[in-house]
């Protein structure tokens, strides 16, 4: 009988590669999208990739010491909270500039002297 657990890869590198891919997709989205909200979402994606890395590391690296595994998920929760705070601040700023410029597209924010 195939246990559900066996479907989960036992290889740390697999998780790290997934995390790296997610991070890269987030970074690419940040570089490629011109809408401030989309960029914000990309950053969230990057942070989630980091969370995945944390949890994976927690599960594999310190299997000898179970307290560390718990720590990894704590970290993930903390990072989520920080990400939420960041999103809040970000949205506030986006709204402020939207009121001034009537556009969410960041490449049109270029009033500053070069």
């Amino acid at each position: 009988m195939l246990s559900a657990l066996n479907l989960v890869s036992q290889n740390l590198n697999a998780y790290l590669i997934l995390s790296g891919l997610l991070f890269s997709i987030g970074a690419f989205g940040f570089l490629a999208r011109r809408n401030a909200i989309s960029m914000l979402m990309s950053i969230e994606l990057m942070l989630n990739a980091v969370n995945l890395a944390f949890v994976a590391f927690g599960a594999f690296v310190s299997s000898a010491d179970p307290s560390h595994a718990a720590q990894a998920s704590d970290i993930a929760l903390i990072v989520m909270a920080a990400a939420a705070a960041e999103a809040t601040v970000g949205l506030a700023i986006v709204i402020a500039i939207y009121r001034n410029r009537k556009t969410p597209l960041v490449d049109e924010y270029d009033a500053m002297k070069r």
Partner: peptide, 18 residues
């Protein structure tokens, strides 16, 4: 380059922030 390489992603543009 990124844009062109992206093929279907032609509408992507980079602003100064990017």
């Amino acid at each position: 380059v990124v844009r062109d390489a992206g093929g279907g992603l032609r509408q992507i543009q980079t602003g100064r922030v990017q």
